[in-house]
Simulated assay, not measured.
Amino acid sequence: MSTEELKTTIEIALQEIRPYLEADGGNIKLVEVTNDTVSVQLEGACLGCSVNQMTLKNGVEATIKRHAPQIKQVIEVSGIRF
């Protein structure tokens, strides 16, 4: 699978979980795919949520791995770039 195909597959996975995040006032954005790692940015209410790491692992990462089993980890990055 090419990088572009993988990104498309990951976007499909994010579309699957996005309604749950939006229901709580949050959202998620794909930042980057490198090797077997996906970087995402949590937005809105997800930023200050006390359970966002649990959501990231149990919701987002599990959904992405179901669509793209070659992905080994999903990490959160902040929106701040230096």
Rank of each mutant, 00 (worst) to 15 (best):
G44M: 05
A45H: 10
R81P: 11
N27K: 07
G48T: 07
G59S: 05
Q15M: 10
S39W: 08
M1A: 13
Q15N: 11
N58H: 14
V74G: 03
V60K: 02
I75C: 02
T9W: 13
S2F: 11
I80W: 15
A23I: 06
V38R: 07
Q15F: 09
V40N: 01
V77T: 10
V60W: 05
E32F: 07
E4P: 08
N27E: 14
S78G: 13
S78K: 12
R66G: 06
I71R: 02
T9R: 14
L56E: 01
N35S: 13
N27F: 10
E76D: 11
L30M: 04
G48R: 01
L14I: 01
L42M: 08
Q15D: 12
V60R: 06
G59C: 06
T37C: 10
E61F: 04
A45C: 06
Y20I: 09
T37R: 10
E32D: 11
N58D: 14
T63R: 12
N58A: 15
G48A: 02
C46S: 04
L21A: 01
N27S: 12
P69T: 02
V60L: 04
V38M: 03
G79A: 08
T37I: 12
N27D: 13
S78W: 06
V31D: 09
G25H: 11
D36Y: 13
R66S: 11
N27T: 10
Q41R: 10
Y20V: 10
E32Y: 05
G79S: 05
E43L: 12
I64W: 03
S50W: 12
A13H: 02
R81F: 14
R66I: 00
P19Y: 00
I80D: 13
F82T: 15
A68M: 03
Q41D: 07
N52E: 12
Q73Y: 09
E16Y: 04
G48S: 09
E16W: 04
T63I: 06
S2V: 07
R81K: 15
N35C: 11
N27Q: 11
G44D: 03
L6Q: 15
I12D: 14
I75S: 04
E5I: 14
I17C: 01
P19T: 00
L6A: 14
L14Y: 00
D24H: 10
E61G: 08
L56Q: 02
V40S: 00
I80E: 15
I64M: 04
I28F: 05
